[in-house]
Design a protein around this nucleic acid. Sequence first.
DNA 1: ACCTGAACACCGTTCAAGT
DNA 2: ACCTGAACACCGTTCAAGT
Lengths: 201, 201
Amino acid sequence: MAERPFHHGNLRAVLLDEATVVLRESGVDGLSLRDLARRAGVSHGAPRSHFVDRQALLDALAEVGFRRLTADVRAALDGPGDVRARFLRVAGVYVDFAIDDAALMDLMFQAKAQTGGWPPEVSAAAVELFTVLDAAMGPRSADTDADARDAFKMLFAATVQGIASLVSSHRVSRADGDRLVTEAMVMMLDSALAARTVSAG
Amino acid sequence: MAERPFHHGNLRAVLLDEATVVLRESGVDGLSLRDLARRAGVSHGAPRSHFVDRQALLDALAEVGFRRLTADVRAALDGPGDVRARFLRVAGVYVDFAIDDAALMDLMFQAKAQTGGWPPEVSAAAVELFTVLDAAMGPRSADTDADARDAFKMLFAATVQGIASLVSSHRVSRADGDRLVTEAMVMMLDSALAARTVSAG
DNA sequence: ACCTGAACACCGTTCAAGT
DNA sequence: ACCTGAACACCGTTCAAGT
């Protein structure tokens, strides 16, 4: 049974695993259905049974990406410390993910810009991430301004995304990126806490 | 002479122009040397005389992109107003460029992450942009801390890049993006001016 | 239900040949 | 110096056929 091809019933999972590796090593351009089929030891038409076209594979990759990032953020939220500490950890894991899996990150958010936005499965995974990120800001209360809260969320996302982008494009070193995350978070929290945008609890 | 093919002596420029249009409409994936040749009315091998391979075309596109962005930033610097006004205008044109030509922007900074970094021509055009951006911060003086100045530059770049990224991926509307630019700049300048990072002149 | 293998239209790249 | 056109190896996608 060792010589039995290992793609009996789990070719989809095998293709996704292979794709994850290739994506990290060679970027999206390096992803080819025929190459993945070759790596999995099946014919070039086989992937079609699990992914209608190349885009369907990319969408599936984006979905697992969102799930993994959500898990990372959740882990960063669980733990000791006040708002500052929590935000620093969340920003840290988010930037780390965006740098280590830059191609995947592009895939995840680029799919939304396509015609029709995210397909249902990807959308569900993305919404889950945003829910967790929202929870990171603490409970909504009467003394927090909803607009300011939204503005803070957007600024947080922009800053984190931007720093990751700078590191990915080698415009700043990874160490400088880490320092930037801290500086930016401190600055944002100082400005936001003064305006009671986020809960201090 | 109207029926004379218009590619006598300027095929390179024609190809670059066509490529700019295609890039904006269909992204990098839509760029094909054979298709550009077809549009220009030449054989599929003709582009080879001006671009050794597809990457050489992408590099040339990145170069003209840097030149155009540099011109935009320069124009934003010339004009009335104090540091705040100047920075708001610079951030504005930068974000506009990054949104309207998102694919080109990716190309410009992605080329640096490739093996070997930027080719000489692209590098020269990029350095010119950074020089102009540096000048936007005003003259260096004895009372400005060099480290804080670098940190501010990186934070500026990250914020601007991040906001553009959010708008490009449709995570925030263009209007919200504009608001974010203003808020982020005000916040950064408040924090930086207090530390004398940028010149008030 | 899942996989094979031929077929088709597209690529990038190379290169001898023309002007 | 610049362009043509055949050739090659690679794609994604479709589809009849097998099990």
